[in-house]
């Protein structure tokens, strides 16, 4: 039981690292702010979700585990909203989305 929990924590942490790596790659490599916002809201939320799930499993669900669940909830609510706010601000600024043939990289 204990061993299973330990390895589950390891697996969740690695998944979180993987998705955060995906989001980092996306934020660095994608061509314009809208596609980057897409990465930021999805891959990064997932990465943070897995990482915080690992934390919740480590500290146990009594007491401090509640805080990590709350944290998970906050991240799930606020992160896509922040990405939306930023993409919307970019739209208001008149930044043109990347389309096929655009040479922005």
């Amino acid at each position: 039981m204990e061993t299973a929990r330990v390895w589950l924590v390891v697996a969740l942490t690695l998944l979180g690292l993987f998705f955060s790596f995906v989001s980092m790659t996306g934020v660095i490599r994608l061509p314009d702010v809208y596609s980057r916002a897409h990465t930021a809201s999805q891959a990064d939320t997932l990465g943070a979700g897995f990482g915080l799930a690992a934390v919740a499993l480590t500290v146990g669900l009594a007491g401090a585990g509640f805080k990590s669940v709350l944290l998970l909830f906050f991240i799930f609510v606020t992160n896509p909203t922040a990405a939306h706010a930023i993409a919307r601000a970019a739209f208001e600024e008149g930044i043109v989305p990347w389309t096929n043939g655009d040479d922005r990289r």
Binding site: G47, L52, L71, I86, A90
Partner: peptide
């Protein structure tokens, strides 16, 4: 653009929370 910077700092912030 500035939005790129804010986006990057937001992602960084999520990372820092983790």
């Amino acid at each position: 653009t500035m939005q790129d910077r804010v986006l990057a700092v937001n992602v960084l912030g999520t990372n820092t929370v983790v």
